[in-house]
Amino acid sequence: MKKLSILLIAAGLFATLSFVNDGGIDTGKKMPTVMIKDMEGHDINTAEVSNDGNPIVISFWATWCKPCRLELNTIMDDYDDLVEETGVKLVAVSIDDERNKHKVEPTVNAAGWDYDIWLDPNGDLKRALGVNNVPQTFLLNGEGSIVWTHSGFSPGDEEELYDEIRKISK
């Protein structure tokens, strides 16, 4: 048991020190292969997400999560300009389970979001990417590598995301 605890701590420290991505660095980490669905029920292989070599934002959210909706509403205000400037695409991954999954489409439409929407009702992609809590946002560069991630949302955080997108857009 003692050994295991030491092992646990060692693994934790090692993993934290080695893999906390400090932003803007291409670690070569890609999207994992997870099969989920979009709102129309089509299968999505998450590893195959692409945007013609332009950046992609993967944002985890839920209908009941206020900061998540605030983040996606805030980005929506600047989205058209941002797409024009950087070619970015945002994929909003809803982790709503069966209780709230059917509220995703009315919520997205009523809010007027122009994002791609994926449904992850059993948390398969959330787990594969190591998301603890929503909101959490990942930025993928044109090669599909995860170059930046941020958890939580406070007003002003969007500016940091825009800066990171601009850094990697061609």
Partner: peptide
């Protein structure tokens, strides 16, 4: 346990060779 400790080292080595070696996780 030893597999888990060993794998991250693998991934560092593999990253140079294969494009798609990944370690993800959380605490």
């Amino acid at each position: 346990s030893s597999l888990v400790l060993f794998l991250p080292f693998c991934s560092i080595a593999q990253n140079q060779i294969f494009d798609r070696a990944n370690v993800t996780g959380n605490m």
